[in-house]
Design a protein around this nucleic acid. Structure first.
Lengths: 256, 256
DNA sequence: CGAGTCATTGATACGCTTCAACGGTAGTGG
DNA sequence: CCACTACCGTTGAAGCGTATCAATGACTCG
C-alpha cells in the first residue's frame, strides 16, 4: 500500500491524519458529499473525513452484518454491492463509481446490510458516520445535500424495480448501458466508449438475467450496428437507438 | 368530502391548524416519525406538523412532478405508490400502511418522483419538509430517526430488487404475504388474517407478475392448504410453510 | 504449456404471459 | 325486486421469452 506520506506531524494521530487530504482538492468534490458547500464548510468536512483506503480487485470493502461505522465515498475505481440469500445466491443491488457513496443502507440497522467489493483497484474515503452526524447540526447545507443523496439512492433503486418489474431483457440491457454512459459523461469521460468494469455474470445478475442472455444481447446489438464490443470495452455506435430502446419506444427483432 | 371540523379558531389559519392533533396521542407514534422521542421533543414535532388530510379510495395524495413540499405519514388506511413509464404502463413501487412515511423519493429532485394513491379511505399527516429540516438542527434524536427511516426505505427497496431479480413467482408471492403479515403484526393486528387492500392486478404489478399468475398462485396455495381466501380476505393456515417458501427453502409442485 | 476463468453460441425446456371464455359480485336504474 | 352492466377474479389453452444444459472458444495466469 504505497501511500505518499509527505509529512508527519503528531505521531499519535498519524494513522488518522497521514493519509487524509482535502475534499476541495479531490476531483470528485463536485459530485460527492461536499457538493455545493462553501470553502469553509468543506474544511470542516475535511476535518472529520477518516483515512483513505485502497482496495485491490475483489477485495471486500465491507461485509454484511459488520457493525456500521463509516460511509464510504469512492475516490476512484468501481464497486459492486450485493446480497447473499439463504440459498447462497447473490443479487447485485448496484455498481458504484467515483463520487458515489456506499453504506447508506446500514444506517437503519447499525450493521451493513450487504457486501461491497472492489471491481478493480480502487480507493475510498472513510466517512465516520457519527462524526458526520455531529457535523450535520453545524452545517445545514451538508445535511440538506446528504438527504438529497439518500433520496437519490431511493429513486435509483425505484428505477431498478421498474427495470426488473416490467422490462424485457433487451430493454433492461439498453437501460443499463445508457445509465453507465450518462454517469461516465457526468464525470467527464466519453459517454460512448467505456470499459465494463464488471463481468457479464455481474451484469446479468444485476439485470435479473443469465450470463448467456447478456452475451446474446450484446451479439444482437452488435449485429444491429448499435454498438461494438471488444472484450469489456463497449462503444455505443447508435446511442439514439439505444436510448429509444431504453425508453421502450424501440424494439429489436428477436434474432436479426 | 366530509371533514369533521369540531371547532374553528382563527379563520385565517383554519386550514392548517383545525385538523391538527398531537403525535403523542396518535396510535402510530411508536412506529412513525416520533418514535423514541422524549415528550418535549414530540411537542416540538407537533408544532410543525401540518394539517391532517383525508382521502377517499382512489384519490391521489400526490402526483409525479408536483413540487415537493410535504412528507406524509399515514395515520390510517393504505396507499400505493407507482411510476408511469413512457409507454403508459405503471409499476407499483410500494404499498404503505399506518405509521409509514411517503414522499422521501422527492427530496433529491424537489419534485415528487411517483404517484401516490389511497387504496381505501385513509388519512395522512402533512409534514412540511422545510420545517422538519429546521427542526433537525434542534432535535438530534429526530434527525437520527429520520435517517433510519430513509435507510430502511433503501433496504426495503433492495429486498424488492432481490424479489424481482431472482425469485420465482411462488416465492415472490410468499414473500409478499409474509411481509404483509409481519407489518400487520407490528401494528397489533392478526398476522394470520387480513384484508388485501389492493387488487390482484396491483399485487401482480408490484411483484412483476400478471393478474392471472397471482390468481393461480392463490389457488395453488389454497389447494396446498397453506391459506384460505375469501375475496380479499386472506387467512394464513400454514405460516411456517409460507415462510419457508419465502426463504426459498420450500418448493411447491407446479400443479398439485 | 496447462489449468482455470470468462464469454459465446446452439439446442432444448419450462415458467410465465397472453389470449380467451366464463363466473361472481357490486352498483345502477327500472 | 329484478334486469342490466361493469368490473374483478378465476380457469384453461397456447405461445413466447428467457433459463438451462452443453459444447466450444478466447484469454489469463502461474
Amino acid at each position: 500500500m504505497p501511500q505518499p506520506l509527505t509529512f508527519s506531524a503528531d505521531p499519535t494521530t498519524l494513522n488518522v491524519t497521514a493519509l487524509k487530504k482535502s475534499c476541495a482538492a479531490c476531483s470528485m468534490h463536485q459530485l460527492c458529499l461536499p457538493m455545493g458547500l462553501e470553502d469553509c464548510d468543506i474544511n470542516r468536512l475535511d476535518q472529520i473525513i477518516g483515512k483513505r483506503r485502497r482496495l485491490e480487485r475483489d477485495e471486500p470493502l465491507y461485509k454484511m452484518n459488520e457493525p456500521f461505522r463509516n460511509l464510504y465515498a469512492v475516490r476512484f475505481g468501481h464497486f459492486k454491492t450485493y446480497h447473499i440469500n439463504a440459498a447462497g445466491e447473490a443479487q447485485i443491488t448496484g455498481f458504484q463509481m467515483a463520487g458515489e457513496l456506499l453504506g447508506m443502507d446500514a444506517i437503519s440497522g447499525d450493521r451493513h446490510y450487504c457486501d461491497a467489493v472492489a471491481l478493480e483497484d480502487s480507493e475510498v474515503c472513510e466517512i465516520p458516520f457519527h462524526r458526520l452526524e455531529e457535523l450535520f447540526g453545524e452545517v445545514p447545507a451538508l445535511l440538506r445535500h446528504f438527504h438529497r443523496i439518500m433520496s437519490q439512492e431511493i429513486t435509483r433503486e425505484q428505477n431498478v424495480m421498474l427495470l426488473l418489474g416490467n422490462m424485457r431483457a433487451e430493454q433492461r440491457f439498453a437501460v443499463f448501458l445508457i445509465n453507465l454512459s450518462a454517469r461516465y459523461a457526468a464525470r467527464g469521460y466519453s459517454p460512448n466508449t467505456f470499459q465494463l468494469r464488471m463481468s457479464r455474470e455481474d451484469i446479468g445478475n444485476y439485470l435479473g438475467l443469465t450470463i448467456e442472455s447478456v452475451s446474446r444481447l450484446l451479439s444482437r446489438f452488435k449485429k444491429q450496428g448499435w454498438l461494438a464490443v471488444d472484450k469489456r470495452e463497449v462503444t455505443l455506435l447508435d446511442p439514439g437507438k439505444l436510448k429509444a430502446m431504453a425508453a421502450g419506444t424501440e424494439q429489436c427483432s428477436p434474432m436479426a
